[in-house]
């Protein structure tokens, strides 16, 4: 565990907490893409199957359980509890266009052709693009609430910090995982446009509004 990995995990944790609190406090999931949240639930489910096969550390186990639990809780809040506030007219990204390529790529490019390994690889590929329905929704409505922007910034920072962690680990431990690294870079690049808007607008107290 190094400082980049730890802050990355904390940014990820923060993002999830911000999102859950926003929905819970406002009793509304307006502006949140339920489809992105479904994709994240699929990502954690397929990645953390090793919870029952491999023990790494108490930290690792607790975080995995939290990510799994919170992702299902978020999906429940959006599609069941606060269904009436869900903005489905603007959440029109076709997730099969992300899931199918991730499945095919996981079958073609993986570390080992075993069920657990392929599911892990699939989760890595899917995570890298899972935010697209949310970004699509923001671009479609042309704006995002500040709290949604904070959520996106924390979530984008997480994989960015993981890249620093991978550089550090490669230098210090000669440890690297090409699949995670390439997918992590793709994932971070997808946020670049948003990062720019966040820094130039949201941090200056303005609402995140896209030019018409």
């Amino acid at each position: 565990m190094n400082i980049f990995r730890l802050t990355g995990d904390l940014a990820h944790l923060l993002a999830i907490i911000i999102l859950l609190l926003k929905i819970w406090k406002t009793r509304s999931c307006a502006g949140i893409s339920g489809k992105s949240q479904i994709l994240f639930a699929i990502v954690y489910t397929t990645r953390y199957l090793d919870l029952v096969t491999t023990y790494v550390s108490a930290y690792n186990t607790l975080m995995k359980i939290f990510f799994l639990g919170s992702s299902f809780a978020t999906v429940y809040l959006i599609y069941v509890k606060f269904k009436a506030t869900y903005d489905h007219n603007h959440d029109t990204f076709r997730i099969e266009f992300l899931i199918l390529p991730a499945v095919i790529l996981a079958l073609l490019i993986n570390h080992a052709f075993t069920p657990l390994e392929i599911l892990w690889t699939f989760s890595i590929y899917l995570e890298s693009v899972a935010i697209l329905p949310q970004l699509f929704m923001v671009s479609k409505t042309g704006e995002a609430e500040s709290i949604t922007s904070h959520y996106l910034f924390a979530l984008g920072s997480y994989r960015g910090l993981y890249i620093l962690n991978w550089i550090y680990r490669y230098a210090m431990e000669s440890h690297y995982d090409l699949i995670a690294i390439v997918a992590g870079i793709v994932q971070t690049v997808l946020y670049c446009d948003f990062f720019y808007l966040y820094i130039t607008k949201v941090l200056k107290g303005k609402k995140l509004q896209l030019p018409a």
Partner: peptide, 10 residues
């Protein structure tokens, strides 16, 4: 196939 690595990250 690239080498299998320990999955100690989240």
């Amino acid at each position: 196939n690239t080498k299998t690595v320990v999955k100690d990250e989240l």
